[in-house]
């Protein structure tokens, strides 16, 4: 397989990373090398093999429904790029 210019542009858009045409060309070549490495995996037969999502075969612990958090807005918003009236601000979103 080979990633085209359009493929790279599409995934960069999906990942919300701005890329210039030159970057797409350079990145595309590197990504194709990486996928060359990854493709080696396709040769192995994995029929009937259960996918392994976690190293340990255990189930999820569930916590009790109790409120344990307190208001830490001031501390959290101290590192925010833009806030007003307790809100995080972003450029206007049009729905």
């Amino acid at each position: 397989m080979s990633l085209t210019h359009q493929d790279v542009a599409r995934i960069a858009r999906l990942a919300r990373i701005a890329v210039t045409d030159e970057e797409i060309a350079a990145t595309g070549a590197q990504l194709n090398n990486i996928f060359g490495l990854i493709e080696k995996m396709q040769a192995v037969n994995t029929d009937g093999i259960e996918p392994m999502a976690h190293p340990q075969d255990v189930s999820l612990r569930l916590r009790d429904d109790v409120v344990t958090e307190t208001d830490r807005r001031e501390a959290f918003q101290a590192v925010a790029p833009q806030v007003a009236a307790g809100l995080f601000l972003v450029p206007k979103v049009i729905e």
Binding site: Q82, A84, A85, L87, F88, L89, P91, K92, V93, E95
Partner: peptide, 18 residues
């Protein structure tokens, strides 16, 4: 929640309340 309206003194922005 995205708050688009009624942000006093602010324009061109959306406020985010989590």
């Amino acid at each position: 929640k995205s708050i688009h309206e009624g942000l006093e003194g602010l324009s061109g922005v959306t406020g985010i309340d989590l």
